[in-house]
Amino acid sequence: MENETPFQPAETPAAPTAAFTPRTDLAQLTARTEAVRQQIGQVIVGQHDLLELLLTALLADGHVLLEGVPGVAKTLTAKLLARTLAVPFSRIQFTPDLMPADVLGTSIFRPAQGDFEFRPGPIFASVVLIDEINRAPAKTQSALFEVMEERTVTQDGTAHRMATPFVVLATQNPVEQEGTYRLPEAQLDRFLFKLNVGYPTLAEEIRILQGHHSGFGGTPLDKVQAVLSAPDLAALRQQVSQQRVEANVLEYIAKIVGQTRAHKALYLGASPRASIALLNGAKALAALRGRDFVTPEDVQFLAAPVLRHRIMLTPEREMEGGTADEVVAQIVQSVEVPR
């Protein structure tokens, strides 16, 4: 049965490509983020997904936890990203004897004035690199709860606002390694993404060796220039916040996160904060990929980085050698893509 409709196909259909372009001008966003990529790409070999996810987090106003074994350029990547931004940067090396005041700051008594003066700690910067975050105990980790979520530090009854942007880039070694602590769930939940930094491929490693052999390895950070200012980043974030998200895609996000609370292999599911993180991340990723709307593809791509650190496996599943990424993949597989 031929489907006779008023819209019979033309023999040679005209290409409607021009109509199917973003209604929001994403040219600035594309140009700025491409400049950041190029700067970092001068030093970092490969790691394209990692770079895309770091930029996504930057546009989504989220903090990032980078996990990997020593020597895979976690810290270097974070420092390079910070260097591409023309904003104040600080670095804190977390150690087992670090105290909350060493991070947040402390009030000093001024004898001349007879009062206390707040001396801000290293957390007061726009981009804060916390190196080896899981080498400090829970007491120090707890000091980050307020500042990471609310962007304020309250000391002696006074709330000190952080500058905008405020991004925490933290690195950690896998928890199985010596001298590390498991981060509290409440703190993990405050990271938009947890990114696993893996080993380079053979070809990438050869390129790394070639670069170092030709004298590149001395001061790689000097090559990188700041290409994104704080006002520029604020404008890009504003654009990202206006991305379109169709109702079925919203429901898709909610279903995926909701499944983490019912999965039999999980002891702890993801919170609504995870849903919001997935939504914000997907909006930023869609913009980075040149679209002004979110697709289920964006959601699926970000499901593991958003959820892997927010869920806890049951002891039985852990003993079987299961991983959070496997469970997330199962969950994504169990939810129908809206179409």
């Binding site: 819209f7 033309a10 259909p13 409607p16 109509a19 169709e246 895609v249 709307f293 289920p296 179409r339």
Partner: peptide, 18 residues
């Protein structure tokens, strides 16, 4: 579908043709 792009009849006819 996801971008909720408004679709006038002429544009729909072209899309349908493809």
């Amino acid at each position: 579908w996801y971008g909720e792009l408004p679709l006038p009849p002429a544009l729909y006819a072209t899309v349908r043709a493809e």
